[in-house]
Design a protein around this nucleic acid. Structure first.
Length: 713
RNA sequence: GGGCGAUUAGCUCAGUUGGUAGAGCAACUCAUUUACACUGAGAAGGUCGGGGGUUCAAGUCCCUCAUCGCCCACCA
């Protein structure tokens, strides 16, 4: 009998342990690959998707942190030179909307503030919130290198993101465009396509008598911006009108419209005749390009009709629609009104219906960049887990449209450009001084717009490694990008594109996408439903280890999981089991050592060791194939139902017997199995395993489990 | 309109190359004989959505149908 380490006499207390252990790890320096022992040579790198610095972590972040920490800890034990770069995201539009809500509560508005004043306030708010976010990351046990942490508004990041824009401009891949963009009338900014979400809506479909035609439209209030009527060139009903001008009746006057033929018009829908309003519809805009049609704006940035709408000027869209319809009805021009269910794009933050609006903006020419990215994936340079995301990625890449990167918000990286408000020309700010005259007679002014957040985030794998500084580029390309499956369009493609564009290499060889974390009934968590589970509350209650293993077991890549508090509680019991089994073994194994053979093993002992080898082999294979849920489950099952239930119980008579050799062998076997499983469980439950490891008797010198070697089978 | 995923125990979900169905919770029974009352142990519970096919063997592969969910999309 050895002596039981004092601390094992008390039950495991995560609260008293986790902070202390984390501090021990941080002080050891092993989160930083530069400090790892010499056996760690080949780099293994993960760039942490930088959590938004505008609040606490949610449970989706907890899953990200857990999965990445599992990969990092496993590979660190495997002898890789592991680097996990943490970050904090200023999250442009996201944070600005959070801050606007705060302002609203205080009875203030960003539209009444100076730009700099607003920027400074959001910066102060973000830097304050960032600390809480970082504390949460630590609480989950993330073994990331804090000495390399980066914030997406660090001066060096801002500088390099702007430099990338200049490079794109000079390569003719960034240009000043003037076309319809997605406009949010509430937030007063344009949005890219991935920042809108399609929402089901039932509107009225109005059939309006329009000269010799009847046109079907859901937007009668835009008739003042109509410049043509379009029909399908194959439509036999309308052949005689194609190329002609027809006179149509508006409430206050009659106007003449050209009739054009375009393939895009669906013969079957409505009447097959379509009114064309290029300034307020993406399709119509495209037709205005092919048919050289004028563009008449009738709705302003606040969603109100302008002077072009005559007596309706100043009315909001909905009011104008009602009145225009009433007036048309009075004139006998409404043939019929039908209910019409369709999907319309809405602002993904406030659900306000997107207003297509013509604006001068900076665009990225996507086709050549996307092709290169798609080719890299087709050549197998990036593996998706699960692999069906490859198809989704390629579909998006093959169908991408030019990317609007201008945002009319202050919270972001300024676009380093000058623009002429008269002719909408744009130039780089280092090619010309503000105030220079434009050939058109206007003046070049500083562009007050900021970049779409994903413009800088897309460069993150490089920027997080200090690009273009070469020091850490040995860690590029990184190994795995692990993030939520909702970022398959928003983020992953941009990173592949910029990685190839700036460095000529894909930024990672593997993309691992996890599903969404839903509540225990499988419903999406949302504040309004009140079913949001806080990871930090769960950590406080059950310990970070229980949360971590509960998030991973039963969770397959790409599929959503349902998280219930009861499940986490169940895995706390597992931690309890580990604690007590270790206490029992260490009580009996005293001052033994492992890693050497023992002379008195029975054939049953040999069998146990062989079985353990199989477990090592299975678990290792699962790890290598990103099957963390199976690795965790196998370990859980083996530890509880083989080691604790069978092996320990079998050894009890030998341990209390009088045959000293058999007793020694039994204790040795138990210690051997325990040490091995403790190592393998470490990536999943790092706190309790590190704490237990400290109580093992064979430490010749102080040695942390975090850098122990992964068991060989 | 396209694409993808799911359907397995009462609930939420696992089941890696085809080879005797698993976990957590809930419900049931027992236990405080020195690892575990911050519980532990045990037993119970499933014709794996329907139908067809391949195979010695199918939850797993193929076809088909049904239901649910998600994503994408310029039919106004």
């Amino acid at each position: 009998m050895g002596t039981i380490p004092e601390k094992l006499n008390k039950p495991y207390d995560p609260k008293a342990t986790e902070g202390r252990i984390y501090k021990l790890w941080e002080e050891s320096g092993f989160f930083n690959p530069d400090n790892l022992p010499s056996r760690h040579t080949e780099p293994y790198t993960i760039i942490m998707p930088p959590p938004n610095a505008n609040g606490r972590l949610h449970v989706g972040h907890a899953l990200t942190i857990t999965l990445e920490d599992i990969m990092i800890r496993y590979h660190r034990m495997q002898g890789r030179k592991t680097l996990w770069v943490p970050g904090a995201d200023h999250a442009g539009f996201e944070t600005q909307t959070v801050y606007e809500k705060k302002l609203e509560k205080e009875g203030r508005s960003r539209f009444k503030m100076e730009r700099q004043e607003l920027y400074d306030e959001i910066m102060a708010f973000t830097l304050e919130s960032k600390k809480f976010m970082e504390d949460d990351v630590r609480a989950l046990g993330a073994s990331c290198d804090w000495s390399r942490e980066r914030f997406t508004l660090d001066p060096v990041v801002v500088r390099e993101a702007q430099e990338t824009f200049r490079k794109l401009y000079r390569d003719n891949l960034a240009y000043r465009g003037y076309r319809t963009v997605n406009w949010c009338t509430k937030h007063q900014t344009s949005l890219s396509d991935v920042e809108t979400e399609n929402t089901e809506k039932t509107d009225k479909l109005y059939f309006i008598k329009y000269g010799p035609f009847t046109v079907a439209t859901v937007r009668p209030e835009t008739i003042f911006g109509d410049v043509a009527i379009a029909v399908n060139p194959e439509d036999s009903r309308y052949q005689q009108y194609i190329g002609q001008e027809v006179t149509v009746q508006h409430p206050e006057k009659t106007i003449n419209l050209k009739v054009i033929a375009d393939e895009a018009v669906d013969i079957e829908f409505g009447t097959g005749a379509l009114k064309i309003t290029p300034a307020h519809d993406h399709n119509d805009f495209r037709m205005s390009e092919t048919h050289q049609l004028p563009r008449i704006e009738v709705i302003d940035q606040f969603g109100k009709l302008n002077e072009k709408a005559g007596k309706y000027a100043g009315l909001k869209i909905a009011e104008a629609r009602t009145q225009v319809v009433a007036d048309l009805q009075a004139l006998g021009l409404i043939e019929k009104i039908e209910d019409y269910a369709h999907t319309v794009p809405a602002c993904y933050k406030c659900s306000t219906t997107i207003e297509p609006r013509i604006m001068p903006q900076w665009f990225i020419k996507m086709a050549p960049l996307a092709k290169r990215a798609a080719d890299a994936v087709r050549e197998g340079k990036i593996r998706f887990i699960p692999d069906n995301f490859e198809k989704i990625f390629l579909y998006w890449m093959d169908n991408t449209i030019d990317w609007n990167i201008s945002r009319q918000i202050v919270w972001g990286i300024p676009i380093p450009a000058l623009v002429c408000k008269k002719c909408n020309k744009g130039v780089l700010d280092d090619d010309m001084k503000a105030g220079t005259s434009c050939p058109c007679g206007g003046v070049f002014e500083i562009d007050t717009d900021t970049f779409d957040t994903w413009f800088s985030s897309g460069q993150w794998p490089l920027l997080a490694l200090g690009y273009p500084d070469k020091k850490d580029l040995a860690y590029y390309p990184t190994d795995v990008m692990e993030t939520g499956r909702d970022l398959i369009f928003k983020w992953i493609p941009r990173m592949v594109i910029f990685g190839l564009y700036l460095e000529g290499k894909v930024p990672f060889h593997t993309v691992y996408l996890h599903g969404m974390v839903n509540d225990k009934q499988g419903k999406k968590m949302s504040k309004s439903k009140g079913n949001v589970v806080s990871p930090i509350e769960l950590t406080d209650k059950y310990g970070a280890d229980a949360l971590r293993i509960g998030l991973v077991i039963g969770n397959t890549p790409g599929n959503d999981i349902s998280l219930s508090e009861d499940k986490i509680k169940g895995y706390k019991h597992f931690c309890n089991k580990m604690w007590n089994a270790t206490r029992f073994v260490l009580t009996n194994a005293g001052d033994m050592t492992v890693d050497t053979s023992h002379p008195d093993l029975t054939s049953r002992d040999q069998e146990i060791l062989a079985e353990l080898d199989t477990v090592i082999k299975n678990v290792t294979t699962h790890f290598e194939n990103y099957r963390f849920h199976l690795a965790g489950e196998e370990l859980y099952h083996y530890f509880w139902h083989t080691f604790a239930d069978i092996i320990i119980e079998e050894m009890k008579p030998r341990l209390s017997g009088t045959d000293e050799a058999s007793k020694q062998a039994a204790a040795w076997i138990l210690l051997q199995v325990l040490a091995t499983t403790t190592k393998m469980l470490h990536p999943f439950v790092p706190f309790i395993t590190e704490e237990l490891w400290d109580a093992f008797p064979f430490h010749k010198e102080e040695r942390l489990l975090i850098i122990e070697a992964w068991p060989n089978s």
